[in-house]
Write a protein that binds this DNA or RNA. Structure first.
Length: 439
RNA sequence: GCGCCUAUCGUCUAACGGUCAGGACACAAGGUUUUCAUCCUUGGAACCGGAGUUCGAUUCUCCGUAGGCGCGCCA
């Protein structure tokens, strides 16, 4: 039988990293098996389930490439099915009505009272529980609304779900759900319970621990492929030493049986490393498209001051870990309004003799008839040789003078990007500011 | 409290009972580079504890310890 799996989130306006990880595993399983990946929106919480929240959810899924195969099922639209199921259970004596706590009569599902409840979880193996340890539970509230357990199971039945892949905070519920499936005359699906994602304290990963929602990773300049790849490796591995894997490779390699069952800590540093790997390998056109919103968000022009964007990106793309870091890392290429790194000023511009060095360089640079990476390179080497100084004594102050930073592209690449006029002007300005004491 | 689950370097993980316990991130030290990033080399770093089964346990069983989850007219 063709596997049918589903992602069944509540639309709350944010998609948690743990949830989307479950979605990824469902998607990967469906694609690997050639099955169907379905989306069900569990929107029974009417206050939080707004159209905007659903929209956010859909955007996150699209961003990550989690395409689904059938029309979305909205749980609220299944209300009649849920209630009919409850009536059926009532009629067959598998559920009963009771007034628990004086709130009016609710419908309660009858669980087996003796024996052992068992099921085999694809990742956790054989699980069992004494029937006496699982209580009867409410399936329809006294206000007539169905409870999660009933709605969830009914929807899985109507959607013909064959495999339920979800967080292992649901293992205990599974004993209840299986009985519901059986009582409703349906065959329970296979279950695969995924380990939770936890923070560096070993506690469930929450908003307090940093970026916790898909949208936040997106805003911070993480690439969807990188986040997808990273999340796929949390609680699963291909079994060999591969880590950077394409979508196709992941689909090809994915099996539920290779999921492990211990909680996984979320290590943002490794994600950032992986993101850098993806950024570096990104096609230039994609990188440009991805970086454009970052520039705009910082109020910067879409092209650098004195050179082509492409020339700048030749230098910057390999140095970019997160897209959101890009503007700050080469601010000086987009505006004259950039700050000088205080530590760099102390170390590279304050030492005695720096002004003289910059003056020498300025004279030399002004006189260059051609301005290329090679010509500035030659010029500076000549200067150093003439005064028997190390290249570093000249390179570092000049870098600070033209960029305000201690890091970045090689100095001669940097000078070529900025151009002769701008480079010389910045060096002159820096000399002035050093003389004024305004730096 | 009761029940269930989990346990390999700091982190993510690999290892059909027999391996010098492997890889990656992070970290450290070198090399390359004018800086940063890249790249290369090297290094430190783990089987939670105790019994048992076995010729042999990281691996199987039990106990302990620790952590997580569940025990709602929440989902």
């Amino acid at each position: 039988m063709q596997p049918r799996v589903r992602f069944a989130p509540s639309p709350t306006g944010n998609v948690h990293i743990g949830n989307i990880r479950a979605a990824i595993f469902n998607w990967l399983y469906a694609r690997h098996e050639g099955g169907k990946f379905l989306l069900r929106v569990e929107d029974t919480d009417l206050e939080r389930s707004t159209p905007e929240a659903v929209q956010t959810l859909l955007e996150c899924m699209e961003w990550l490439g989690l395409n689904f195969d059938e029309p979305i099922v909205y749980q609220t639209q299944q209300l009649n099915v849920h209630l009919a199921a409850a009536e059926k259970l009532l009629a067959e004596g598998k559920a009963y009505k009771e007034d628990k706590g004086g709130k009016g009569e609710c419908v309660i599902f009858r669980m087996p009272k003796e024996g052992t409840l068992t099921f085999t979880d694809i990742v956790k193996g054989a699980l069992k529980k004494k029937a006496e340890d699982v209580q009867d539970f409410v399936i329809v509230r006294s206000d007539g609304s169905p409870v999660f357990h009933l709605a969830n199971v009914c929807d899985d039945i109507t959607q013909n779900i064959t495999h339920v892949i979800r967080g292992d905070d649901h293992v205990e519920n599974t004993f209840k759900h299986i009985e519901l499936f059986k009582a409703l005359g349906a065959t329970p699906p296979q279950y695969a319970h995924l380990p939770m994602i936890v923070n560096n304290m070993g506690k469930p990963y929450s908003k307090r621990d940093g970026a916790a929602f898909v949208g936040e990773f997106r805003e911070q300049g993480y690439l969807p492929d990188a986040l997808f790849n990273f999340l796929a490796l949390l609680g699963w591995s291909p079994g060999d030493d591969r880590e950077i894997m394409t979508r196709d490779e992941l689909v090809e390699a994915f099996t539920l049986s290779r999921c492990n069952s211990a909680a996984a800590r979320f290590d943002i540093k490794k994600l950032t490393w992986m993101n850098g790997e993806y950024v570096t390998k990104m096609p230039r056109a994609d990188f440009i498209a991805a970086v454009a919103p970052c520039l705009e968000a910082n109020g910067l022009p879409s092209a650098p001051l004195g050179c082509s964007l492409d020339a700048l990106l030749d230098q910057m793309q390999p140095r970019t870990k997160k897209l959101s870091d890009f503007p700050a890392n080469c601010l000086y290429c987009f505006t004259e309004d950039y700050a000088f790194d205080p530590k760099g000023v102390e170390k590279r511009l304050k030492p005695d003799g720096t002004i003289e060095i910059l003056q020498q360089v300025l004279e030399k640079f002004k006189g260059l008839s051609t301005w290329t990476q090679e010509s500035t390179d030659v010029a500076l080497h000549e200067l150093c040789a003439a005064v028997e100084a190390g290249l570093g004594a000249y390179v570092h102050p000049v870098r600070m003078a033209v960029s305000g930073m201690t890091e970045g592209p090689g100095l001669f690449d940097l000078l070529a990007l900025l151009g002769q006029e701008r480079s010389c002007r910045r060096i002159a300005d820096t000399i002035t500011r050093l003389q004024d004491g305004t730096l």
